[in-house]
Design a protein around this nucleic acid. Structure first.
Lengths: 340, 340
DNA sequence: CTGAAAGCGCTTACAG
DNA sequence: CTGAAAGCGCTTACAG
């Protein structure tokens, strides 16, 4: 009852029909050189027996499978879940399965996931780096093996790889400029590790917007922290302790922004009354809290779709490309904007 | 550059070492009958060449693989993401990989996912039913094939299957009783399709709590709806239109509860001032919104862990079991409770 | 249009 | 302790 039942194979069908396994195989694959009569007979017999081809055997024989690996820091973040949906949408209709792994932002787990996927002989790997990943030996090893790889969002920038990102720099630049235009000058920035392209770019966008407006940059207001609720909360507490509170914060992540918001409430610093605030990622909660948080839609589904297409193209030997999508800023009440 | 490179096999190692492939295979698998000397030599050579065993070939030969399939309605819901984490935690250290599919609450997609996983010859399938799944032919077919299956949360109740759930009935009963004890009598219930065990059980828990307190059940206040923000919002609008607004709503889902909350605000119905409200699932946002929403921690990670262990046990021919975990109610301000 | 044969990369019973 | 051989379930070049 519990042992996997012996499943039917092409040889069983062949025997039953008094033909060869080759013919069964060809019939099942709709090979045209087979007479319609036998093809029909085979397919009928296969259906009757619930025949399910053994893809492992086929993959082994053909030297390439139909599984693609995905590594994300965390599946329970809307952004990454959307990306996975996008990837699945494109790849499943090409007959691929997805094997999804999480790095949990740990380099060690990322390496293990990578090894697991190589082990499983996936056809390709689509991935976003963990927060801890600052050097790329494991990735270079995988690529040396000839594995098709496409990176998205957090990418190994100094490597010649296929990638799909949004224009983080522009988004941060625009957001900051918008605040400046509203008359604010004391604008802080809270971001993650600068070894990660997205945080480095958002940081640079913020800086350049200030520079363009001839506003002096105050390094004390440029904070690098863990992009968690707690991390954000600590940042605001530090501002309060220092007795030097900005008018606005351009934050590189929604969770950290939420922490800032919560701590601000605690200190009766009103948002947007006393402090403007924006996040990044357009997490579900951004439109559910009060005030609603201005954020950046990172177009996860599109990123996923493009990454999947990139993989498909690579299989056809198309050249390496770096794709940049345009992010969509969602202005909400936390920046005095009520368009939504 | 783009074609998958030819990878090294046990035969290559054997040739280089002047021994047989059998010996290489045994050495790599730490078979004790091999002399330490040759075992070491083989393992050194393998490491030198970045040898990666082809698991597909091994699985084919051994008749069973190391991949487990998971089907959930949606990966971007905290509950299901947690379950997946729990499953992964247990199974990855047993050497299994996960293949994750989403049904998107559609029976058709669920069937397709099931077929895909069977096709991939997974060792087992852990799944939660889609909202649309009311009959179980596809599942019975899969089980007839001898596939190890474990269900969690939403399960095919009239089938003799392994399952892991929480005590939804008790949770709803306790929640409702708590409200009654606070003096409320006009209590409504909003839930999902009663063809799904979890919603049926929550519904029954609610009813029985009222009965136990000798409060008459008002069928107009027992609503079955899509458990979305919109669905919940519509329910409250209907209450308002009918001019018959309850004092409290025990809602079987957080998103629907959020919809109720938002519509209530629109109509200046204060929560918890005029209306008590509770949800289910303990989604992230429940503690982020105002008022904080009382909800039920469904212990996703534990469910995942138990489901994975159940799968492992089944492989060892242990008998079918139905496991029920105790849910944890998180009382918050939406029910006048500020323990958190 | 169909079949016999080889081979994908492993593992393992059999033999020594 | 080690090797030769068979076989897991497919696909496909070769031959007819």
């Amino acid at each position: 009852m519990s042992a996997p039942k012996k499943l039917i194979t092409i040889h069983d069908i062949a025997r039953e029909l008094g033909i060869s396994a080759s013919t069964v195989s060809r019939s099942l694959n709709n090979n045209t050189r087979i007479s319609k009569a036998t093809r029909d007979a085979v397919q009928r017999m296969a259906a009757m027996h619930d025949y399910q081809p053994n893809k492992m055997a086929a993959s082994l024989r053909m030297g390439s499978g139909n599984t693609v690996g995905v590594i994300v820091p965390n599946i329970n973040r809307k952004f990454f879940a959307s990306i996975i949906s996008g990837i699945e949408q494109v790849l499943s209709q090409e007959g691929y399965n997805l094997m999804i792994c999480q790095s949990n932002e740990l380099r060690e787990k990322e390496e293990k996931a990578l090894a697991t996927l190589l082990d499983a002989r996936v056809d390709g790997i689509l991935m976003s780096l963990s927060m801890e990943t600052k050097s790329y030996e494991h990735i270079e090893t995988a690529m040396r093996r000839g594995t098709q790889m496409v990176f998205f969002d957090r990418i190994p920038e100094n490597l010649e790889v296929d990638s799909v990102v949004i224009n983080d720099y522009q988004a941060a630049y625009k957001l900051t400029s918008k605040l400046i235009k509203q008359g604010y000058k004391r604008i802080a920035h809270v971001g993650g590790s600068r070894s990660i392209n997205v945080y480095r770019n958002r940081n640079q966008g913020y800086r350049d917007a200030l520079l363009a407006a001839h506003i002096e940059i105050n390094e004390e207001w440029i904070i690098e922290t863990s992009m968690t609720v707690e991390g954000g909360s600590n940042v605001l507490e530090d501002f309060v302790l220092a007795g030097n509170i900005p008018d606005a914060v351009v934050c590189a992540g929604d969770f950290a922004a939420l922490g800032i918001l919560q701590s601000a409430k605690k200190h009766s610093i009103e948002v947007p009354g006393h402090l403007l605030l924006s996040g990044f990622a357009n997490e579900d909660f951004t439109s559910l809290i009060s005030p609603k948080l201005t954020s950046v839609d990172q177009r996860g589904k599109d990123i996923g779709r493009f990454a999947a297409k990139r993989f498909l193209d690579k299989k056809k030997n198309m050249p390496t490309r770096k794709i940049e999508l345009e992010a969509k800023i969602i202005y909400r009440s936390s920046t005095n904007d009520n368009t939504e």
